[in-house]
């Protein structure tokens, strides 16, 4: 599965937390979501994002980084911050 950035008007990051503007909505992302967004460069494999999150935050309790990553990305996708494909 691939992921890319949504139509983000602007973003500001401080101390690992990112605020994004999508349309007229301004949202503060969690540190996990902020890190996931930072790793998305063009059309990116979800597994690459997952590996980056594990490196930064450690493996999730259930040991399934892809499931954790998808959950984060699906939340971001619902808010229009990213686009999931495939």
């Amino acid at each position: 599965m691939r992921v890319s950035r949504g139509s983000i008007t602007d973003a500001v990051t401080r101390d690992g937390e990112t605020v994004v503007m999508v349309g007229d909505q301004v949202m503060l992302l969690s540190p996990l979501a902020s890190a996931a967004l930072a790793r998305i460069d063009g059309d990116t494999d979800v597994a690459v994002v997952g590996a980056a999150l594990v490196e930064m935050f450690g493996a999730p309790p259930d040991g399934d980084p892809i499931s954790m990553t998808l959950s984060v990305l699906q939340d971001l996708s619902a808010a229009g911050v990213v686009k999931l494909d495939g």
Partner: peptide, 16 residues
């Protein structure tokens, strides 16, 4: 700052 931006955005005209 990151907590302030969403708070202020709601009270800013034509921010976008």
């Amino acid at each position: 700052t990151v907590a302030a931006l969403p708070l202020l955005a709601e009270q800013t005209s034509y921010l976008s």
